[in-house]
Simulated scan of single mutants.
Amino acid sequence: MAGRLDGKVAFITGAARGLGRSHAVRLAEEGADIIAVDLCGPLETVDAYPPATEEDLAETVRAVEKLDRRIVTAVADVRDGAVLAEVVSAAVAELGGLDVAVANAGIVSFGGTLELEERAWRELIDVNLTGVWNTARAALPHLVERGGGSLTLISSIGGLRGMPAVGHYVAAKHAIVGLMRTMANEFAEHGIRVNTVHPTNTDTDMIQNPGTYRMFAPDAPEATQEAALPAFRSLNAIPVPWVDPIDISNAVLFLASDEARYITGVTLPVDAGALVR
C-alpha cells in the first residue's frame, strides 16, 4: 500500500531529537523526504535539560535513511529568519519542492511572573514565537509555489489554558494560535492548510531528565509513568502522566495527509483529556 505522503517533502524544525525526530521518522515512514533543522546547541537561559547535539541530528538522519527516504539537514537557529529561509530554499532545490512544514522547535524554562528574568522571557519568546513565524515565512513561499500543502505549528495545552510558572511559554503558545488562524485565512486561497497541535506532557528530553522530571518525582529510582503519576494525577483526565511522541506525530501526519484535505484553522489537542479537566 502506498504511503500517505509518497512523493512529498516535509520540513521540520527542532528535528534532532524528541518530537522533531519522531515527526521526521513518522512522515518518512509514510513516504516523505525530510528537511531537518535544529540548533544543536545550548541556549543561555535553558538549564533544566541538556541541549540537542549534532550527533542527535545525525541519529535522525540514520533513522530516516533506514526507511530509504532522502533527508537534508542543517544546523540553524530558528531565530534567524534570513538563514532559515536560505536553508529551506537550498534544501527545496535539492529535493524538488515542499509540501509539508512543521514548526516544532521550542524550549521551556521556569519562573513565576515576579521571579522570571527578562532575559529568559525574551529568549523563550524569540524561539517559541518568532522562531515559529520565521519557520512559516521560510516555508510558505515554497508551499504556494507547489500549489498547496500543510503547515502545522506545534503549540501546547498551554496554548489553550493557563499554567503556573511558565507564563512566557503559555504566552508564546497562545500567540501561535493567533498566527495559525491568521495564516489559515491568508493562505487558504493557495490550497495551504494551517493548523496547530496541542500536546500535553510528552515523553521527551524536556521532562525525562534530572532538571525537570526529578522536580516532579524526586524520589523515583527511574523515570517511569507509574513513578510520575502522583505528581501529574490532576493534569490529564486519562490517568497517564504523559503521552508518547508517536501520539503527537500521528496527529501531525494526519493533518499533513489528504485525509485532512479540508481541515484548516483547527486547534487539535493530543492531551489525554487535559483540557476537559
Rank of each mutant, 00 (worst) to 15 (best):
D6R: 07
G7D: 09
G7P: 10
G7Q: 12
G7V: 11
K8P: 05
K8F: 13
V9T: 06
A10L: 01
F11M: 12
T13R: 00
G14Y: 03
G18W: 11
R21F: 01
H23D: 06
V25M: 00
V25S: 02
R26C: 14
R26Q: 12
A28P: 00
I34G: 00
A36C: 11
L43K: 12
T45M: 07
A48V: 14
Y49N: 06
P50Y: 00
P50T: 09
E55A: 10
D56Q: 04
E59H: 07
V61S: 05
V64P: 08
A74F: 08
D77C: 08
V78H: 00
G81H: 06
V83M: 10
L84N: 05
L84P: 10
V87T: 04
S89E: 14
A90F: 12
A91H: 06
A93S: 15
E94C: 15
L95V: 05
G96A: 09
V102A: 01
A103V: 00
I107T: 12
V108L: 15
F110S: 09
F110D: 02
G112D: 13
L114K: 14
L116G: 09
E118Y: 09
A120E: 06
R122S: 12
E123P: 04
D126Q: 03
V127M: 00
T130Q: 08
T130G: 02
T135V: 03
R137Q: 15
A138E: 07
A139P: 02
L140D: 09
H142G: 01
E145C: 02
E145T: 15
G148Q: 13
G149K: 01
S150E: 09
T152A: 07
I154E: 03
S155Q: 12
S156N: 07
S156L: 07
I157E: 04
G158W: 13
L160C: 10
M163Y: 12
V170I: 06
K173Q: 05
L179I: 15
R181W: 11
M183K: 08
M183D: 14
M183L: 15
A184H: 06
E189P: 14
H190T: 02
N195I: 03
T196A: 08
V197Y: 06
T202S: 04
D205V: 10
I207E: 02
N209Y: 04
G211L: 02
F216I: 02
P218L: 03
A220L: 10
A231T: 11
F232I: 11
A237H: 13
I238D: 11
V240F: 14
P241G: 09
D244H: 07
D244E: 14
D244V: 08
P245M: 13
D247V: 01
D247N: 14
N250T: 13
A251V: 08
V252H: 04
L255A: 04
L255H: 03
S257N: 11
D258L: 09
E259P: 03
I263L: 10
T264W: 06
T264R: 05
T267P: 14
L268H: 06
L268P: 02
L268Q: 04
D271K: 09
A272L: 12
L275A: 00
L275Y: 02
L275K: 04
R277P: 07
